[in-house]
Design a protein around this nucleic acid. Structure first.
Lengths: 252, 252
DNA sequence: CGCGTCATTGAAATACTTCAACGACCGTGG
DNA sequence: CCACGGTCGTTGAAGTATTTCAATGACGCG
């Protein structure tokens, strides 16, 4: 148990994740029954329709939450990164599959342990409520993106969200109008971006090419992109996402 | 207070709404500080960015939750009907405007009363968590609709959701493959349908016309529509929404 | 009756997809 | 070491769905 506490104390998910709502006793109790697990990129963490036997806090990497249409096309309905929670206590089967989009490390908790903890502790319940409420906000923002943005705006908005996320991880700050020439490692492949933005892979590729032609960014090797003109991206999406992202920062 | 309890006892939102999580004492306490309020169609219940001083349980009518883009275009990110809850305790300002889409009656609770109740009562917290989790599921389903469906499928899916909802209100049952020739009163105008489905009003109109030409439905006066061939609608959206709606029924 | 809102319909423009080919990268096996 | 196949990303050309612009019709209300 001492070992578990030691591990928790330096956990990257402690500040933001579920464990932030626990007192020392609870943390020790949960630490004693939790374990770390790695998933290779592409591996399923849980399937759609399955009742996961355990929940997870993402420690590193990116997890895509996806739903499939009958014809096999897919739509990513959310992304989970460090500090995010996988699974929904008390709500039965998962309605979206969770798939590792990169090498992923999660802290894994038995369902029973989490549900017992949530039943006893008001703080845990509150955290779960606020976490889910935050996810709902993000989902509603995504609805606006999917319903009302052009492909160009969608791509720009995606780049901005990656940018903002990088900034947040580095500085804890998430003000967007940063200095320019920021190099990003995109967390998703073109196919995954397409599935996230409700586009085809070709459309995503073409719009990135167009941004490159306009000098707004440079495409490096692999999934690397250097953004030269954040302002231009912001202009494309209008102030919508800006406001939206600024508010998202407040919550975190 | 006796009056309040009497009112609550026959409340249409009692079975499904927040009040279903209350014991007799709590119900009396909340009933004592609640009041009914009516909103005409088109009137704002709360604005985007505002911290609403009170929350509401919808008793009748339909409320649209909407977000605006900087250019003025709008996107409906959710609908609330009888039993649904308006506002998010503890989460600060509203991130979507709530606007009456029809004559709406709500049971209105002071923010402080709800938050006090939720702080004291585990059952209330649980209800809030499960309610928000349910809303998140619906939002994620909508993401799939917006990201991966054609206009035809979107319109068909919308009609099916209205159909299912009618069936649920009538029978408490929500199995979809109903008898045919069902007459519906659409809760939304064409403009609102467009804002909900991420389309233009003309596209919605054209696709409804096409369904009419194919004999799948008849358009009556006002917002009335008679569906002749539910199966055809189901075929259009594939089994995706069917599954999805069936599961949604389980939750309710 | 006339005005305003809402819905329908047509024609042209455009954004996105689909189909198809090609190039870059990477690991594997000869 | 190089050739080979596979995945991934890019690009072109054609096709299609949806939007945009514009006009007209239906309905309700003063």
């Amino acid at each position: 148990m001492r070992k578990a506490r030691l591990v928790c104390a330096e956990c990257p998910a402690l500040a933001k994740g579920l464990c932030s709502s626990l007192n020392a006793d609870e943390l020790a109790r949960l630490g004693a029954v939790s374990w770390h697990r790695r998933f290779q990129s592409g591996k399923a963490i849980h399937e759609e329709g399955e009742i996961p036997p355990a929940f997870g806090a993402v420690l590193s990497g990116v997890v895509k939450l996806m739903k499939s249409m009958p014809d096999g096309t897919q739509q990513i309905v959310g992304l989970a990164g460090a500090g995010d929670f996988l699974g929904r206590p008390f709500t039965g089967e998962a309605r979206a599959a969770a798939v590792a989009a990169s090498e992923v490390e999660v802290c894994w908790f038995p369902r029973a342990a989490i549900e017992a903890l949530a039943t006893e502790s008001g703080a845990v319940k509150t955290w779960l409520y606020e976490y889910v409420a935050g996810e709902l906000e993000k989902a509603q923002e995504w609805i606006v993106l999917l319903g009302r943005m052009t492909a160009e705006q969608k791509v720009a908005a995606f780049l901005l969200s990656v940018l903002r996320n990088k900034r947040f991880e580095k500085d804890g700050d998430s003000e967007l109008p940063a200095e320019d020439d920021v190099t990003l490692d995109l967390p998703l492949s073109r196919t995954e971006m397409a599935d996230y933005l409700g586009l085809t892979i070709e459309t995503v590729s073409r719009h990135i090419a167009r941004l490159r032609e306009r000098g707004i960014l440079t495409v490096g090797s692999g999934r690397t992109v250097t953004v030269h003109d954040t302002g231009a991206l912001l202009d494309m999406v209008g102030s919508a996402l800006t406001t939206l992202r600024a508010k998202e920062a407040l919550r975190a």
